[in-house]
Amino acid sequence: MNKFKGFTDSETFSQLPDKFFHNLLKDIDDAAELKVTIYFLWRAEHMEGPFRALSRMDFDVKELGLSADEIKRGLEKAVKRGSLLKVENEAKVYFLLNSPRGRAGVEAIESGKWNPASATSAPPVERPNVFKLYEENIGPLTPLIADALKDAEAMYSDEWVADAIELAAKNNKRNWKYCEAVLKRWKDEGRHGQKDQRDTRQGSERYTKSEFAEYLDG
């Protein structure tokens, strides 16, 4: 057994349907079925598009800690139980959640109106927490900075804070005040507007002039 080091103070969370806890958790007695069901729910939440489908190959052996045969068995049990739906398209097998959207997805696949192969289904990338990211890119994590990071995560998001830290490191402006100024700018003007899509040099200049000048030293 690998010893788990514990959760951090900066975790992202994935939603699970309440019915999973009320109706499925107590009935699923096979570890493989439980793993593939939770894995599907996690992957589906991070997918975009009208429907959420995973092929059998999308169920990662390493992440699940299961063999290919165990994954196959778990999926078959989940389909038999009715938590997942199974459909074939162009010689590939896909699985969808047994929900109104999932059932509509099966109909769309069977009628040729939607090809699940066109959807991207890469698993979400695990990002380092902002405390570790700060120490690696900006400097020592003092109690004051730790509190500031927590406040920033609550006000913005861990993704925004991480991106601001990475931008500060990229521009060699390694101090928290600079990161904070970037976050305020993003909040006031938006992150993905036209001004945010300039080339690297222009983007760097944008954060090294005018109101950010006082944060550029030290």
Results as ranks from 00 to 15, higher is better:
residue 83 S to G: 08
residue 123 P to M: 00
residue 119 A to K: 03
residue 100 P to L: 14
residue 93 V to G: 02
residue 109 I to L: 00
residue 106 V to F: 01
residue 123 P to H: 04
residue 104 A to H: 08
residue 100 P to S: 13
residue 90 E to L: 14
residue 120 T to A: 05
residue 87 V to M: 06
residue 81 R to I: 09
residue 122 A to N: 04
residue 80 K to R: 14
residue 121 S to N: 15
residue 115 N to H: 05
residue 106 V to I: 07
residue 108 A to F: 01
residue 88 E to Q: 14
residue 109 I to E: 02
residue 83 S to N: 13
residue 109 I to M: 00
residue 125 V to M: 10
residue 99 S to K: 04
residue 126 E to M: 11
residue 119 A to I: 15
residue 85 L to S: 07
residue 104 A to P: 03
residue 103 R to Q: 10
residue 103 R to Y: 08
residue 103 R to I: 09
residue 104 A to K: 13
residue 96 L to W: 06
residue 100 P to V: 09
residue 121 S to R: 13
residue 87 V to A: 07
residue 117 A to R: 06
residue 112 G to L: 07
residue 121 S to Q: 05
residue 108 A to T: 03
residue 88 E to D: 13
residue 94 Y to D: 02
residue 98 N to I: 15
residue 99 S to N: 08
residue 101 R to S: 02
residue 107 E to N: 12
residue 102 G to D: 04
residue 124 P to E: 04
residue 83 S to W: 12
residue 123 P to T: 02
residue 119 A to R: 08
residue 91 A to E: 09
residue 98 N to W: 09
residue 100 P to D: 12
residue 114 W to F: 14
residue 86 K to V: 07
residue 125 V to G: 03
residue 118 S to I: 13
residue 109 I to K: 01
residue 93 V to F: 05
residue 82 G to Q: 07
residue 98 N to R: 10
residue 89 N to Q: 13
residue 115 N to W: 00
residue 95 F to C: 02
residue 89 N to R: 15
residue 93 V to E: 10
residue 110 E to Q: 14
residue 86 K to D: 07
residue 103 R to D: 09
residue 106 V to K: 02
residue 108 A to R: 00
residue 106 V to P: 01
residue 92 K to P: 05
residue 84 L to E: 04
residue 94 Y to A: 07
residue 99 S to H: 05
residue 116 P to F: 00
residue 106 V to W: 02
residue 125 V to E: 09
residue 83 S to R: 13
residue 123 P to C: 01
residue 83 S to D: 14
residue 85 L to A: 01
residue 93 V to P: 15
residue 116 P to K: 00
residue 100 P to F: 12
residue 96 L to G: 05
residue 113 K to T: 12
residue 125 V to K: 06
residue 113 K to P: 05
residue 106 V to N: 00
residue 99 S to T: 04
residue 113 K to H: 11
residue 126 E to L: 12
residue 121 S to M: 09
residue 92 K to W: 12
residue 112 G to Q: 08
residue 104 A to W: 13
residue 117 A to T: 04
residue 91 A to L: 15
residue 112 G to M: 06
residue 91 A to P: 11
residue 126 E to I: 15
residue 88 E to T: 10
residue 105 G to T: 03
residue 108 A to K: 06
residue 97 L to R: 06
residue 115 N to D: 09
residue 81 R to W: 13
residue 86 K to T: 06
residue 101 R to Q: 13
residue 95 F to H: 03
residue 109 I to F: 03
residue 97 L to N: 06
residue 83 S to P: 11
residue 109 I to D: 03
residue 124 P to L: 02
residue 96 L to A: 00
